[in-house]
Each structure stands twice: as structure tokens, then as C-alpha cells.
């Protein structure tokens, strides 16, 4: 399997092999991520293909590093667009459940809602305040929409413990944002 730099070089050379290599290396990761959000294999397939097209158009000039995180971001964004476009549908995806978990833990709008960039910076500050394992659990749940079982397998923590940790982390998040008067 070729390294990320070589894949990017293929994109710069406008070689279609770039997409094949990208899919070979990160296809499974991308499909899982999209499926977690959409809970529909056909939709997930469509989103991953759309994401690949987006990446093809973005590189060059972009030279993302790390490539894997960049690809995941694009896949997540494309999948969320479809998720919201078809908002009336009941998907019962992990993403659905994860969103509902977040509903009660975030501070309600009080005055002025935070701008997107400001909120992102606040979230990054919150992530920095967590110890590594809790940060991974939080991201795997709310960024990747992993199930508790998947998080348990990855972190080596029992499922029940993952659930309890997430409850505490969400409380911490609420406190963190409230103290900084970050509302959405």
C-alpha cells in the first residue's frame, strides 16, 4: 500500500490511479463513517463517491496533511449534507442517537449564538482539556458516530463504562461552554 504522499502526488499528476489508491487505503474507513451517519448502504456509497470527486477537485492545489483526516472530513461533510437534505426520513442511525444525546447537554441560547468558527475553537479547547482516552471516546462517538460497542473495542473499556464516561464528558462539555458563554 503506497504512502499518503505518493497518493497526493498521483492527484497532482491527475492520475485516476489516485482514486483507486485512496479507496484501497481509506475506502473502508470512509464507508463506515458515512454508514454510521446515514444508516443506508446505497446512500453511504453515493456519499463516498461524491467525497472522492470533491477530493479530486480539491487536490491540487490542496496538499492535505494528514490526508486521512482530510478525507474523513470530506466524507463526513458530504454525508451530513445528505442526512439533513433528507431530514424527514427516520434513519435510526448512530448519528441520530448521538445527536439526541447532545441535545440536553449543551447550553441553551441566551444572548448571541456563537459563530461557527468560534464554536469550533471552543470545541477544540474543550478537547484539549480532556485526557486522551476521554477525548478519543468523545470524538469516536460524536465525530465518527461510533456505537458504544465499537468504542469499547477500540479503547479497551467496557461498553457500560463507555456510556457512563460519555455522560460525564457531556456534563463537562456543558460546563465548559457555559463558563465561556458559548451558545449555539
Amino acid at each position: 500500500m503506497i504512502d499518503d504522499k505518493s497518493i497526493i502526488d498521483l492527484f497532482f499528476a491527475r492520475s485516476e490511479k489516485a482514486l483507486a489508491e485512496l479507496d484501497g487505503k481509506y475506502g473502508k474507513l470512509c464507508h463506515t463513517l458515512s454508514l454510521n451517519i446515514l444508516n443506508n448502504r446505497q446512500d453511504a456509497e453515493e456519499c463516498v463517491n461524491d467525497a472522492y470527486l470533491g477530493i479530486w477537485n480539491a487536490i491540487p492545489p490542496a496538499r492535505p496533511d494528514p490526508l486521512r483526516a482530510y478525507v474523513c472530513k470530506v466524507v463526513r461533510n458530504v454525508s451530513l449534507k445528505l442526512y439533513h437534505r433528507r431530514g424527514a426520513e427516520k434513519r435510526n442511525s448512530v448519528y441520530d442517537v448521538a445527536l439526541r444525546e447532545l441535545e440536553d447537554c449543551l447550553p441553551a441560547p441566551d444572548t448571541v449564538e456563537a459563530e461557527g468558527r468560534e464554536l469550533t475553537r471552543a470545541i477544540e479547547g474543550f478537547l484539549d482539556s480532556l485526557r486522551e482516552e476521554n477525548r478519543i471516546i468523545f470524538l469516536r462517538r460524536y465525530w465518527f458516530s461510533d456505537s458504544y460497542a465499537e468504542i469499547a473495542a477500540r479503547t479497551g473499556i467496557p461498553e457500560k463504562s463507555v456510556s457512563m464516561r460519555l455522560v460525564r464528558i457531556r456534563k463537562q462539555l456543558k460546563r465548559y461552554l457555559t463558563e465561556r458563554e458559548v451558545y449555539v
Binding site: P66, R68, L80, L119, E124, L139, W143
Partner: peptide
């Protein structure tokens, strides 16, 4: 939560990579 999720999606790649 939609806004939050979108903002979360824009965090630095290092967090995603580590996860």
C-alpha cells in the same frame, strides 16, 4: 445540535487523526 455537529466537523485534523 446540527450547528454543534457542523462546528465539530471543522476541528483540526490532528484530533481526527488521533481518534
Amino acid at each position: 445540535t446540527k450547528t454543534f455537529s457542523e462546528a465539530l466537523g471543522e476541528i483540526d485534523g490532528k484530533y481526527i487523526e488521533s481518534a
